[in-house]
Lab assay of single mutants.
Amino acid sequence: MKVIFLQDVKGKGKKGEIKNVPDGYARNFLFKKGLAVEATPANLKELE
């Protein structure tokens, strides 16, 4: 799953980066803790 990092995550990505991460990791950790959002067209547009 492609995500946009909202904060630096040690060993995974830095704020503003767009990266592919495993689905479970994204849903169960990154999204729940507010560290990233899914890289949807709407979210990508907001990032610009």
Results as ranks from 00 to 15, higher is better:
M1Q: 06
M1W: 05
M1H: 04
M1S: 04
K2N: 12
K2F: 15
K2E: 10
K2R: 14
K2L: 15
V3H: 00
V3I: 08
V3A: 01
V3R: 00
V3E: 00
V3N: 00
I4Y: 08
I4H: 02
I4K: 05
I4D: 00
I4G: 01
I4F: 07
I4M: 08
I4A: 04
I4R: 04
I4E: 02
F5H: 00
F5M: 03
F5W: 02
F5G: 00
F5P: 00
F5Q: 00
F5S: 00
L6Q: 03
L6W: 02
L6H: 02
L6I: 10
Q7D: 08
Q7M: 12
Q7N: 07
Q7L: 11
Q7Y: 12
Q7T: 13
Q7I: 11
D8I: 03
D8T: 10
D8A: 07
D8V: 04
D8R: 04
D8N: 12
D8E: 08
V9M: 04
V9Q: 01
V9N: 01
V9E: 01
V9D: 01
V9G: 01
V9Y: 04
K10S: 11
K10L: 14
K10Y: 10
K10T: 11
K10F: 13
G11V: 01
G11H: 08
G11K: 06
G11R: 06
G11M: 06
G11P: 03
G11L: 03
K12Y: 15
K12P: 01
K12V: 15
K12Q: 15
K12A: 15
K12H: 14
K12G: 13
G13L: 02
G13A: 11
G13Y: 13
G13S: 04
G13E: 02
K14L: 11
K14G: 05
K14A: 08
K14H: 10
K14N: 10
K14P: 01
K15I: 09
K15Y: 06
K15M: 09
K15F: 06
G16H: 08
G16F: 09
G16E: 02
G16L: 05
G16N: 07
G16T: 02
G16I: 01
E17W: 03
E17A: 06
E17N: 04
E17T: 06
I18H: 04
I18D: 01
I18Q: 04
I18L: 07
I18Y: 03
K19L: 15
K19T: 07
K19H: 11
K19F: 05
K19I: 10
K19R: 12
K19E: 02
K19Q: 07
K19W: 08
N20Q: 13
N20V: 15
N20R: 14
N20T: 15
N20G: 07
N20E: 13
V21L: 06
V21D: 01
V21S: 02
V21E: 03
P22N: 10
P22E: 12
P22Y: 07
P22A: 10
P22K: 09
P22T: 09
P22L: 08
D23E: 15
D23I: 15
D23N: 13
D23M: 14
D23F: 13
D23K: 13
G24T: 13
G24W: 15
G24H: 15
G24E: 14
G24Y: 14
G24I: 12
Y25F: 10
Y25I: 07
Y25H: 04
A26N: 04
A26P: 01
R27K: 14
R27D: 06
R27H: 10
R27Q: 10
R27G: 03
R27Y: 11
R27N: 09
R27F: 12
N28F: 10
N28Y: 12
N28G: 10
N28D: 15
N28Q: 09
N28S: 08
F29A: 06
F29H: 14
F29V: 14
F29I: 15
F29W: 11
L30Y: 03
L30W: 02
L30P: 03
L30Q: 00
F31G: 02
F31W: 02
F31R: 01
F31T: 05
F31K: 03
F31M: 07
F31Y: 05
K32T: 11
K32W: 07
K32H: 09
K32I: 14
K32N: 07
K32Q: 12
K32L: 14
K32S: 10
K33F: 15
K33P: 02
K33I: 10
K33L: 15
K33H: 15
K33Y: 15
K33T: 11
K33E: 15
G34S: 08
G34D: 05
G34E: 06
G34K: 09
G34I: 03
G34Y: 09
G34A: 07
L35K: 03
L35V: 04
L35G: 01
L35F: 10
L35Y: 12
A36Q: 00
A36N: 00
A36P: 00
A36T: 01
V37Q: 08
V37S: 04
E38G: 04
E38I: 08
E38M: 09
E38A: 12
E38S: 06
E38R: 09
E38K: 07
E38H: 06
E38P: 12
A39L: 07
A39S: 05
A39D: 02
A39Q: 03
A39T: 03
A39E: 02
A39P: 03
A39N: 02
T40L: 05
T40Y: 05
T40V: 06
T40F: 06
T40E: 05
P41E: 14
P41Q: 12
P41A: 14
P41R: 09
P41H: 10
P41M: 11
P41T: 13
P41N: 10
A42Y: 07
A42H: 12
A42P: 07
A42N: 09
A42W: 05
A42I: 10
A42M: 09
A42D: 13
A42G: 13
N43K: 11
N43L: 12
N43F: 10
N43E: 07
N43A: 12
N43W: 07
L44F: 08
L44I: 13
L44E: 06
K45M: 13
K45D: 09
K45V: 11
K45A: 13
E46M: 14
E46P: 07
E46H: 11
E46K: 15
E46A: 15
E46R: 14
L47I: 12
L47H: 10
L47G: 06
L47R: 08
L47Q: 09
L47A: 09
L47N: 09
L47P: 06
E48Q: 14
E48S: 13
E48N: 11
E48I: 14
E48R: 14
E48D: 13
E48K: 10
